[in-house]
């Protein structure tokens, strides 16, 4: 169905922690503009997979390829450099800085002229404008960009963190439980953002315990159980939550 190029391919990943095999020969494929749901019980290997894809963990066996090029990440910064960003639950936003300052933290733009070039004077208005335009492009409605992050709701913070990843050129975004502990409205904010990013060609790995959320946004769902991928299902075939739970628990 999806004729887009494969942007992320992991093949034959095995990861052991001592005697425990957390991942056992797992392969995944992700195309541009596709949302891959990742589900499984606790200890099924989801978090280990996220670690491998985001550069936090090194697999014992197997390869990770981004845009067709095989990569080996020493840390998350290296993964970020080739366009993979993981939005963790702790979000890495600074509460006392405002939205625009957070989006541009460590990527500040300098102003024109000598002050900017030599004395690193920031171009604050340009940065604010870019953030505003970025949010507009992805249809994110947030309070003014000068609002401090501490004044935002959980869903708004998620939206800021996710949009920041995409604004900085990540075309593969991994979201670890993005809608956990959010209210209905805030969940809607996050899920609708996922859908819009998809329409913009961003490839997304969506990890969640919530079957409804996964079924709503995912094109495909990979089910993990005991370190193996037990199913890789196209969601458009009348998939039901009950069926997925069966796969997760091994009842199906």
């Amino acid at each position: 169905m999806n004729e887009q190029p494969v942007v992320l391919a992991v093949e034959g990943i095995t990861k052991r922690f001592g005697a425990v095999t957390a991942l056992n020969d797992v392969s995944l494929e992700l195309r541009a503009g596709e949302v891959l749901g990742l589900i499984g019980d606790n200890g099924a290997g989801k978090s280990t997979m996220v670690g491998v894809m985001s550069g936090a963990l090194r697999p014992d066996e197997g390869t990770v390829s981004v845009d067709g090029v095989e990569r080996s990440f020493a840390n998350p910064a290296e993964a970020r450099a080739v366009g993979i960003e993981t939005v963790f639950q702790n979000l890495a936003l600074v509460p006392t800085l405002n939205i625009a300052e957070n989006v541009f933290l460590r990527r500040e733009q300098y102003g024109p002229g000598m002050l900017g070039k030599t004395f690193h004077r920031m171009h604050k208005s340009a940065m604010r404008r870019e953030v505003r335009e970025g949010f507009e492009r992805f249809g994110v409605t947030l309070p003014p960009v000068r609002t401090k992050v501490s004044a935002l709701s959980g869903g708004q913070r998620q939206a800021v963190a996710i949009t920041r990843a995409v604004l900085w050129g990540s075309h593969i975004v991994i979201m670890d439980e993005p809608a956990a502990a959010l209210g209905v409205k805030q969940t809607e904010l996050v899920l609708s953002l996922v859908e819009r990013l998809k329409a913009h060609g961003v490839a997304i790995v969506f990890i969640s315990h919530n079957m409804q959320h996964v079924l709503r946004v995912a094109d495909r769902i990979a089910v993990f159980r005991l370190g193996r991928k037990v199913a890789d299902i196209d969601v458009h075939d009348q998939t039901t939550g009950a069926h997925l739970v069966g796969l997760m628990t091994g009842a199906a």
Partner: peptide
């Protein structure tokens, strides 16, 4: 000038507010 006009001011603030978040962004 450092505090308000240079990135350093924000970086200092980010370290004071949330050192882990600041480090994860590369501060």
């Amino acid at each position: 000038y450092i505090w308000y006009e240079m990135p350093l001011g924000r970086h200092m603030m980010s370290i004071g507010a949330d050192k882990i978040a600041a480090r994860s962004r590369g501060v």
